[in-house]
Design a protein around this nucleic acid. Structure first.
Length: 432
DNA sequence: TCTGGGGTCCTAGGACCC
DNA sequence: TCTGGGGTCCTAGGACCC
């Protein structure tokens, strides 16, 4: 029994749904079957979030501007994403995953890693589990997926990609994939080294450009480069990481259920905004959404960040860290507006966003305070909550931040002896 | 071609503390 | 003091992923 676990290679699965959002849309509206379907914004500034194989056969792919997708595939059906619905489906196939192992790590709505090392005696080897999962997802949900199996997350992910169908020519169906692909430990390098470097996790367009200068095209080329050279070119963390990956070394564990580190909301506007007041109202709306989601997640955060993207795509962020975490919309909005005061929207703002980070799990006291302030149920409740925080964490926990105070138009954040707190970004740095 | 919205992680400089 | 060095936190930006 013990020998079964000791010295054994882990078995990791990566499950990747086939064109997930678009497939769910076809499922919910069977008249779409057989037609090219594109999920995403259809406006001038929209992009493709997902598309089915009928659309892909015309060269459409995720992240492509919708304007271009329309040109490539004029008869495509555009649908707006219904992310709550996708999340429901995601929950359902996660339940299927969890019937094979508790070690399930979702990396997006449509992808997950499974560590099935402990379940092999019960359910069979990786390939068998992969086939069982595919069959259940097909039979119970009517969806398709590809499964990669390997000794590590990274190999499993590359394997699932290789197991997927390939888009055919326009008007023709896709070439079916193998569905489940197992990469045995002794075949890893054989599988990995011929792939283009861009296949590696963490190699995007910018990194690719840098690697081009060394004449690196394949993973084998990358593996042949000394680590020090790579570190000099890409920095310490990325250089070492990519070198390890190029030799198929990846010991990152499958981690189920991790807490979020930030919660944000942002929007690209159909027409640029130029007006400070309009932006201020947007800040309130976004702060509201962010605070609501934070409370729902049972989290609160100390750092509020605003993000502004100008018409020319130049993007800036301004942030401020509070002494005490919050999940109160009014507080987040106040900080966001203060930060915004140091930004000139004159050139035209195409995107604006608010996010909350430095997250911690909410304490009961803080939630009571938030609720009291947010609902205006009464300052007595708020004061009691503050007292509770003081009693538990000391004066320092609430002293510097003091309270949120109603003042006519809304709420203002008060800090001790502070006449001009707020964006320190206003200390001479330009926005360009 | 003209670039969404949700995130994660890394880097680098400065402040501050011991 | 002609000034060390490490650690941690904050801010801003950038690359990347799905």
């Amino acid at each position: 029994m013990a020998t079964d676990q000791v010295g054994e290679e882990p078995t990791i699965l990566h499950v990747d749904m086939d064109s997930f959002y678009a497939s769910v849309e076809v499922l919910l509206d069977p008249t779409l079957r057989g037609k090219p379907v594109i999920v995403g914004g259809s406006g001038d500034r929209g992009v493709v979030a997902s598309c089915n194989y009928e659309a892909r056969s015309f060269g459409v792919h995720s992240a492509m501007p919708s304007v271009r997708a329309k040109r490539l595939c004029p008869h495509a059906v555009f649908v707006h994403g219904r992310f709550d619905t996708y999340a429901d489906y995601s929950k359902r196939f996660h339940e299927i995953f969890r019937s094979f192992t508790p070690l399930v790590e979702g990396i997006s709505l449509d992808e997950a890693f499974l560590d099935v090392t402990g379940g092999r005696r019960l359910f069979g080897d990786g390939a068998e589990i992969g086939r069982a999962i595919r069959a259940r997802i097909r039979d119970e949900l009517g969806l398709r997926c590809a499964v990669g199996v390997g000794r590590s997350k990274f190999i499993a992910k590359l394997a699932s990609k290789a197991a997927k169908p390939k888009p055919g020519r326009p008007g023709q169906g896709p070439t079916p994939g193998v569905g489940v692909l197992v990469i045995e430990p002794d075949r890893e390098l054989e599988f990995l080294h011929p792939l283009p470097v861009g296949a590696l996790w963490g190699v995007g367009p910018q990194t690719q450009k840098k690697l081009d200068r060394f004449g690196i095209v394949t993973v084998a080329d990358l593996a042949a480069l000394p680590v020090d050279t790579l570190v000099a070119a890409l920095g310490n963390a990325q250089g070492r990481h990519l070198h390890e990956l190029a030799w198929a070394r990846d010991d990152r564990p499958v981690v189920p259920e991790s807490k979020p580190k930030s919660i944000g909301h942002e929007e690209t506007y159909a027409k640029d905004l130029h007006d400070h007041d309009v932006l201020g109202r947007e800040a309130v709306r976004m702060a509201d959404a962010v605070a609501h989601r934070a409370r729902k997640a049972g989290m609160e955060g100390r750092t509020v960040t605003v993000k502004v993207r100008f018409h020319d795509f130049h993007t800036i962020t301004r942030s401020h860290t509070l002494p005490v975490p919050t999940a109160t919309a009014a507080v987040v909005a106040t900080v966001a507006k203060e930060l915004l005061a140091g930004v000139d929207p004159g050139p035209g703002v195409r995107l604006f966003g608010v996010s909350l980070s430095n997250l911690v799990e909410a304490t009961d006291e803080q939630l009571t305070l938030d609720a009291a302030v947010a609902d205006h149920t009464g300052w007595d409740d708020a004061a009691r909550a503050v007292d509770a925080v003081r009693a538990r964490f000391g004066d320092a926990a609430v002293g510097p931040a003091a309270l949120v105070e109603a003042d006519g138009a809304g709420l203002r954040l008060k800090r001790e002896g502070d006449t001009q707190w707020g964006p320190r970004g206003a200390r001479g740095k330009t926005d360009r």
